[in-house]
Amino acid sequence: MDILKTYKIYIGGSFPRTESGRYYPIADATGKTLANVCLSSRKDVRNAVVAARKAFGGWSEKTAFNRGQILYRIAEMLDGRKGQFIDELMDQGISKSKAEKEVEQSVDRVVYYAGWADKYQQVASSVNPVSSSHFNFSALEPMGIIGIIAPQENSLLGLIELAIPAICGGNTAVVVASESYPLCSITFAEVLHSSDVPGGVVNILTGKVAELAPALAGHMDINALVSCPLGELQTSLALSCVENLKRNFIYTDPNRQGLNFITDLQEVKTTWHPIESIGGATSSY
């Protein structure tokens, strides 16, 4: 007997149904219904943000090394369930070769950012020359909660490419999954759930981008909004972001891998520390 999987959303480390009780069907290429997926509401966004804020303190204070270990664990778990992800992508009408490539690349990306976790700080921080007797240095700090609108195509890879660098840098995330291909996002939530990622660090909602994205953009407790081009919606989202001076990143280049995906979501803190002289022959350093 086939057991049909119930796809729920992922908030605060548990898998609730949407509070609105609404669903929408996902069909395969032949039009046969594959699954009913939660049509999340503004209130689910609110609950996810509360969970993300609660998780932020603990996650951002973990050591960079530990975050790297946890990210690497995600890659391991993802790799172990490759077959399931490939099947799921193919069910949604993606060709076998494309599906395999997408899952391969997904694992690859997670490993890439796992490696960066305890290195981006050294690379992107700086000691700055100043013309007074101060030791002046700039270091990165996570922004807080990142609202992420995953791209519609490459539903698994795209989600990973936007969400993993955010949490790599100590942020927590509220992700709106691909509207048309949402199945992998919830299976990926199961991967996160079994990878020592604390509940609330990544929260994943399925539903209409046009309904959920404005709720993210207008939310005062979200510190940055990350998306790929969204067409007409883009302008109104940008306007909503103004209310709390939320940063609004739109990644147009389809090649989405690099250090800047981490550092974009970091604030820079510069410290002036009074000291005699730096780097000179008589310096105490």
Partner: peptide, 8 residues
């Protein structure tokens, strides 16, 4: 109509 943050 906007959800708020404790920051403010």
């Amino acid at each position: 109509g906007l959800y708020q943050s404790t920051d403010y």
